[in-house]
């Protein structure tokens, strides 16, 4: 079981909302500006315009980043309550700050696998930055990677870059994202697999992302994980938001 990500909210002072996210030696800074004025050309009469910019760890953006931007954009469009803030712009910028050593091997590292393993981190960062900017959201999201090695033994759930390198080549790699209700929000799978295998991978990802009784109790998740209990990503997210609310309410609590 991979360790849970760490996240700091509102790390940038100029942006409306920001987040620094570290997981499995990926570090990403996300910033959100919005709702702000939108260019006439991009203005939508009944919903907000979302703009996603992804900056790679080195060099300028390539078509690969455009593809990731499209995926993040399409996913966020169903997460943000775009109808509530029509004719505005919400700008999401994601800067990849560091990648695992195994993946940062020069400009040639643009293999398809590394673009898939980056996707969950980008999604998490963008969500945290949106939360930090207090943009109205419809739901939350959690995302993870499942890799199936060639020998088909033992699915790797949210594998580290080192694990992926050692067990190479993978037969298939899957990225799943679920919304707050546990519905499948995004799926990118590639390689070679059957329907049953995909189903199994999806189930495992669901377990990692949104396992738990779905209770709305705010602070309770944080104490339970002290015993080394495997905690789902959703509980982690709940913890992050809980801490944010705690900080914002401290003027009330303080006596």
């Amino acid at each position: 079981m991979a360790p849970l990500p760490t996240a700091d909210l509102t790390t940038l002072h100029r942006a409306d909302g920001s987040a620094t996210y570290t997981h499995l030696s990926h570090t990403i800074i996300g910033s959100v500006n919005g709702p702000i004025e939108v260019q006439r050309r991009d203005e939508l009469p009944s919903s907000a315009t979302l703009e996603v910019n992804i900056r790679p760890a080195g060099g300028v953006g390539t078509p690969r980043e455009r593809h990731l931007e499209t995926l993040v954009h399409d996913t966020l469009r169903s997460v943000v309550l775009v109808e509530k803030i029509p004719r505005t712009l919400v700008q999401v910028t994601l800067q990849v700050r560091s990648l695992p050593e195994e993946e940062s091997g020069g400009a040639d590292s643009s293999t398809t696998a590394s673009s898939l393993t980056l996707l969950p981190h980008l999604l998490h960062t963008s969500l945290l930055a949106l939360l930090s900017a207090s943009i109205p959201l419809r739901t939350t999201l959690t995302s993870t990677v499942v890799a199936i090695p060639r020998d088909g033994q033992g699915m790797l759930v949210s594998p580290t870059a080192n694990e992926l390198l050692r067990r190479r080549p993978m037969r298939s790699i899957h990225v799943f994202a679920f919304d707050g209700e546990g519905k499948l929000l995004l799926n990118e799978s590639e390689g070679e697999f059957g329907v049953e295998e995909w189903d199994e991978a999806c189930e495992m990802a669901e377990e990692v992302c949104c396992k738990g009784d779905g209770g709305v109790g705010l602070g309770e998740g944080m104490d339970v994980d002290g015993e080394g209990q495997a905690q789902s990503l959703e509980a982690w997210l709940r913890g992050v938001v809980g801490r944010k609310v705690e900080v914002e309410q401290r003027w009330r609590v303080a006596t």
Binding site: L71, D74, T75, R77, S78, H174, D179, E181, K183, L184, L185, L186, N187, E188, S189, E190, G191, E192, F193, G194, V195, W198, D199, C202, E203
Partner: peptide
């Protein structure tokens, strides 16, 4: 199956 790409909504489930 060689590739699945799904994005943009929550209608299509398993």
């Amino acid at each position: 199956v060689r590739k699945i790409e799904k994005s943009g909504g929550t209608v299509v489930g398993r």
